[in-house]
Nucleic acid binder design. Structure first.
Lengths: 351, 351
DNA sequence: ATGAAAGCGCTAACAT
DNA sequence: ATGTTAGCGCTTTCAT
């Protein structure tokens, strides 16, 4: 590999001149620049990343922190990752995948102090997350994808759950639905204060009130069978329900299957809207799921932009939150509410 | 940040001694080693990755090459990535995500010559893949996840498609099925010589012959609606079929839906086995898919191990191929073949 | 507008 | 078993 020295010699200039045409940090006459560029081309010169990093103390690499052990990544998370990676690349950065969950402080300590990474993107953020505290005290630049309980002084990019729930409920109400179930994350998540679970719960209650309709919230596991259990429970608690909102796409498929097996037709008898859903999964269902499509790629890209902005100095507001709502994609599982026999008494619907 | 110098001074030794206790490249007396270690601990010393990389010409980072633009990663590919990442970390390596598809030679050229990466994992390998040629001429260490047409002198880790198809067919035959459809990738893939499509096609024919049964192969798009179209076509071409093998999980769900809507019950009327399928998607279906679970994580890990072995010098066979079959997970979509009225004439099954 | 030179923090000969 | 020292290839003052 040709080095900067080789280029300098060939162009008849000093190494520093070569360096400066590369970084653009100081004015160079057009003539010499051309000579240098030409020499580079002829030699097939490519700056050495390590040397550059050592001298400049910047690697142009950001780390993406996410728990990886065991658990498979969902489509939404995957979209995050690809979005972030693409955005980084377009800005001339690289992205390193770092299997570091909320509790893995030792791993993170090493990562953050070995000087390999310019900053961090933090995924799967818990309400209290040791990674956040650590990065803060080490003062490494970072931005959260998600939110902790207290976001003071933090840069966050997250899904706008409030808006998403409101939009979903509005969609159902607009179709005439007056009794809606919300199938949330598990009660364990809820008890653990998991942000999305908590936020959507509150938002759901607010939406019910705002629209003057009734509803129930049922927590459940994020699996197809969890969805089945949940919808049964919901229909028991609220027999007149005609609309259901589901937090999890896996659960959504379970719900669809269970309704079908109960002799209920979707969307004629019951409408189902799935939240934070990826397009692939939505299309897997029959009929395809009406869903609040999660802006995974956009979020990843946004987070990356925010991080890179901080790295480039123009720090801006330290407490900065960017919220992106999921967007409603009406597909086959939502439709007009069936006329109800009576506001008070439930429709048949065998179980 | 404390440097090696600080540690050396504090421990009363030379820098090289500190370096050697770190790398273990030469014997150090227990006494001095302890003093050095202690000094490190007291200072919270962490070696600087860039400096180390520059001096040693090894970054301990491997690049994972995969096309990323637009297309969402499937569950299987995602498992690859996480498997590779985990395996790398356990070996003290990092993994960089590099959005580099089969044609992106310019990007790769830069990546491979800037000296940031010790080696490459290449995903989504085409039958002819420019990345392979380039890496070869640059002689960067690399291993393929997948296979090119000519694997001579290459290290590959791939799914054992032949074995997988054979296992799947054997499962169906064991259940009494005598007429089987294989829903493959699209005809475009097939025409383009896409490895998995080609290999499974051949393997399917071989399996039919070996077991002395009949069958049809139908190419289709990797979507739910593609699956629907495919199963209709298959039943038309081969009305007596009772078993179907599907290459793609999305198509599998479409097939299930279409069969259901055609009044056919799975697995009583028709058994469905999905190949190269992830557990999440399998469980999304109702009933859950009997599937040949793709060994995504294992493959990623295996590929990483092979690459790291080459990096560590003990090169071994340059032409090395490791094939891992998918493993059969019997769930709810396969069962005994229904007794046939006649070997020649088809069963009713309205459409 | 350009050059000279001092590091960046480490590894790995080459010494002893 | 340990110390000395010359780089690794670049950035960035400090000169001119």
């Amino acid at each position: 590999m040709a080095t900067m020295h080789d280029v300098a010699r060939r162009a008849g200039v000093s190494v520093s001149t070569v360096s400066y045409v590369l970084t653009g940090t100081r004015p160079i006459s057009a003539a010499t620049r051309d000579r240098v560029l030409e020499a580079m081309a002829e030699l097939g010169y490519q700056p050495n990343a390590m040397a550059r990093g050592l001298a400049s103390r910047r690697s142009n690499i950001v780390g993406l922190l996410l728990p990886l052990t065991g658990r498979a990544l969902g489509a939404t998370e995957t979209a995050f990752v690809t979005g972030a990676t693409e955005a980084a690349r377009q800005a001339g950065y690289h992205l390193m995948l770092c299997p570091v969950g909320p509790g893995d402080t030792d791993e993170l300590q090493v990562l953050a102090t070995q000087g390999l990474l310019d900053g961090f993107l933090v995924m799967e953020v818990g309400l209290t997350d040791q990674r956040v505290d650590l990065l803060r005290t080490l003062d490494s630049p970072f931005v959260l994808i998600g939110r902790t309980a207290d976001t003071d002084g933090l840069a966050c990019v997250d899904i706008d759950f409030e808006q998403t729930v409101e939009d979903a409920v509005a969609h159902l109400v607009g179709l005439g639905h007056q009794a809606i179930a919300y199938v949330n994350h598990s009660s364990a998540s809820l008890a653990g204060g998991y942000g999305p679970a908590k936020r959507t719960e509150l938002a759901f209650e607010a939406a019910l009130e705002r629209h003057g309709i009734t509803g129930v919230m049922v927590p459940t596991e994020d699996t197809a069978s969890g969805g089945r259990a949940a919808i049964r429970q919901a229909r028991e608690q609220c027999p007149e329900l005609t609309g259901v909102l589901v937090m999890n796409e896996n659960a959504a498929l379970g719900i669809l299957a269970d309704l079908r097996e109960s002799g209920l037709e979707v969307p004629y008898d019951v409408s189902v809207v799935s939240m934070v859903t990826s397009e692939v999964v939505a299309d897997l269902a029959s009929p395809p799921l009406t869903a609040m499509t999660s802006p995974g790629t956009a979020l990843g890209a946004a987070a990356t932009r925010v991080l890179l902005d901080r790295l480039t100095g123009d720090a801006g507001d330290p407490t900065y939150t960017e919220l992106v709502p999921c967007v409603l994609d009406v597909r086959g599982t939502s439709g007009p509410a069936r006329p109800r026999t009576r506001p008070t008494k439930a429709a048949p619907g065998r179980r």
